[in-house]
Computed example of a mutant assay.
Amino acid sequence: MINPHRFSIGPIDAQIAMLRWGESGRPPALLVHGTGFVADVWDEVARQLASTYTVYALDRRGHGASHKPDAYHFLDYAEDVCRVIDALDLCDVYGIGHSAGATDLLLATKLRPGRFTRLFVMEPTVMDPRAARPGGLSEDSLTRVQGTLRRRAEFDSADTVFERYRTAPAFADWTEPSLRAYVRHGFVPLENGGVRLCCTPEIEFAILRPIYEAMEQVYVGDARGNPFVSLTEIDCPVRVTTAAKSGPIYKEMASRAVSLIPRVSTLVFEGAGHCVAQEVPERVVDAVREFAG
């Protein structure tokens, strides 16, 4: 089994950590993970796709070995994707993303028109700017976001993390290789032998606020404005997928994406939850190949 090649792009204070599977010279596929995870959770999918593509994946800002700045708006992430595309001089990219990582790709198509050949996006985080609501987050959502700050960040060992997460509802259906990849690369070792989350509760709190604002249709963006109107200008084919066991909000946001994107088709993964690529990676690979074909 060949391990992915690890490298980074960008200056030392703004580096984006990258993985590459497969040989150069093949069409590029760019994989972008969701909130809280790392590039390595794609490993089972990427290894299979590497027979056809040069497969790249990145640690999104705030995650893994990538930079940990203060800004976590949707366009910040989309601009990071563009940095990757520019640094690697990627063309005809097959973008494959999950959750907020899928949103990164959708928004990047506006910033780098003509660079993507197609997008396969699993339950993207999307608001419909045509149905924006005034005001801020509801008290319930504020409580949920603030609850992130109470998340446990340090553990005695990586084995302790694995055993704890193995029985947690969010990870119960993950394959063992996917969960072990997350535990290995989503935590940093400490001098006392313990481990700490790379995406700390404080960072995840900053990341989640814009996401919850998008969920509730109150996201207004920053000085650059609300970027979601650009989804109406995507010029490549897009497949938006949902998972039958996901929560209603994920299906609702996917429906918003479908209503905005011009050249769109849909797919439902039966019997799977939100983290479909870590639950049934073979089925994701088959679906990605089918859409390309």
Score class of each variant (00 low, 15 high):
Pro210Leu: 15
Tyr72Val: 03
Ala287Lys: 05
Ala181Tyr: 15
Ala181Trp: 10
Ala170Asn: 14
Lys110Asp: 13
Cys198Asn: 03
Pro248Val: 05
Glu213Gln: 14
Pro4Thr: 02
Asp43Cys: 01
Phe291Ser: 10
Val183Thr: 06
Asp156Arg: 03
Arg283Trp: 04
Thr103His: 03
Ser255Leu: 15
Asp13Lys: 12
Gly64Glu: 08
Ala153Lys: 08
Gly101Lys: 09
Ser141Phe: 03
Glu204His: 09
Met215Lys: 00
Leu267Cys: 01
Ala17Ile: 00
Ala14Glu: 07
Ser157Asn: 08
Ile96Asp: 03
Arg196His: 13
Arg60Ser: 13
Ile261His: 08
Asp80Tyr: 00
Gly114Leu: 12
Ala172Ile: 03
Val81Met: 05
Pro281Ala: 09
Lys110Glu: 13
Glu44Ala: 12
Gly34Pro: 00
Gly95Val: 09
Ala206Arg: 08
Glu213Leu: 07
Thr266Cys: 06
Glu23Ser: 15
Gly34Glu: 00
Glu176Phe: 06
Leu267Arg: 09
Gly95Phe: 11
Gln217Pro: 03
Arg47Asp: 14
Cys199His: 07
His67Thr: 10
Arg166Tyr: 14
Pro262Tyr: 14
Glu204Val: 08
Asp76Arg: 11
Thr52Met: 15
Thr103Arg: 11
Ala272Ile: 02
Arg47Phe: 13
Gly34Ala: 10
Pro129Arg: 01
Ile203Ala: 05
